Simulated scan of single mutants.
Amino acid sequence: MAVFVALGAFLMTLAGGWTAQRVTDRRHLVLGLAGGLMLGVVGLDLLPEALEAAGREIHGVPAAFLLFVAGFLLAHLVERLLAGRRAAHGGAEHDHHRAPEVGLTAAAAMVGHSAMDGVAIGASFQVGGGMGTAVALAVIAHDFADGFNTFTLASLYGNARRKAYAMLFADAVAPVAGAAAASFVHIPTSVLGGYLGLFGGVLLYLAAAEILPEAHHAHPARSTLLCTVAGVLFIWLVVGAMA
C-alpha cells in the first residue's frame, strides 16, 4: 500500500518539474517561487523535524542546528571551490562563475530528501492506515515543490536540459524507492535528524545566496516578491495539514 501511495508522489514530482520548465518566459517568477518554497521547506519542515529527531545537544547546542550551520558552510565552500576552479580554466564571466556541479549536487540532495519522504510514508503505514494516509497526502503535496526545485536547481547552474530531466526523474522515483526500502531497512532516528539538519543548511544557502538574488537581479518586481511569499505560505499549509 505504501509503494502504491508513493506513486502519487512520483506523479506530483514530475508535475512540479514540468511546471518549472514550462514557464521559462517568466524565469524571475519561477526563481522567486522556488526560493520561497525552499525557505518554507527549511524553516517550517526540515528544521523542526531535524530538532525532534536528532534530540541530543553538543556543547550546549542542538546537534541538528550544528549540522544545519555545517551544511550552510559546506555549500558555500563547495560552490567557491568549484567556481574558482572553473574561473581558473577560463569560465565565462557572464556565468558569474557558476559551477554546474553545484546545481547537480543540490539536485542530488533533493533526491535524497525525497527518498526520506518515501521512508516516512512506509514507516507511517506500519503505524496504521490513518497515519499513513495523512503523511502520504502531505508528502504528495510537498513533492510538487520538490520537483519544481529539483529542475530549477539543476538548470539554474547551466546544466544541459537532459541532466535536469534526469535529476527530476530520479527525484520522482526516490519516494517510491524510499517507501519500498522502509519495509526492509530501519534508519536510526538520530541519523535521519542529522541528515535533515545538514540538508536544511545546504538548501538555505542556495535559496538565500543564489536563487533569490538571481530572481531579483534582472527583474526586481513586486510580483517576484509575492511569488516568494506564496511559496512560503504553500509549505506552511502543507506542514499544517501534516500536524
Results as ranks from 00 to 15, higher is better:
194 G>C: 11
39 L>E: 09
85 R>I: 09
81 L>I: 14
19 T>C: 10
48 P>L: 12
130 G>S: 14
63 A>I: 06
13 T>P: 10
229 V>I: 15
44 L>S: 03
135 V>E: 02
42 V>R: 01
220 P>T: 13
71 G>P: 00
139 V>R: 03
27 R>Q: 15
87 A>N: 11
120 A>G: 06
225 L>E: 10
236 W>L: 15
102 V>L: 14
230 A>W: 03
211 I>G: 07
202 V>Y: 12
76 H>G: 13
83 A>S: 15
29 L>D: 05
171 D>P: 04
117 D>K: 01
93 E>P: 07
151 F>S: 02
139 V>N: 05
232 V>P: 09
236 W>K: 12
41 V>Y: 02
115 A>P: 10
17 G>W: 05
212 L>E: 08
23 V>D: 06
160 A>Q: 06
32 G>S: 09
235 I>S: 13
63 A>N: 04
233 L>N: 03
15 A>D: 00
163 K>H: 14
171 D>W: 00
133 T>Y: 05
221 A>V: 02
217 H>A: 14
230 A>G: 08
82 L>E: 05
60 G>C: 05
211 I>P: 06
121 I>S: 11
185 V>P: 11
97 H>N: 07
237 L>R: 04
89 H>Q: 11
34 A>F: 04
26 R>N: 14
111 V>E: 03
175 P>Q: 01
182 A>Q: 03
72 F>Q: 01
109 A>P: 08
222 R>H: 15
12 M>I: 01
106 A>T: 04
28 H>D: 13
233 L>R: 03
240 G>A: 11
142 H>Y: 03
196 L>V: 10
151 F>I: 06
208 A>W: 13
128 G>N: 04
7 L>S: 12
74 L>V: 15
235 I>Y: 06
43 G>W: 10
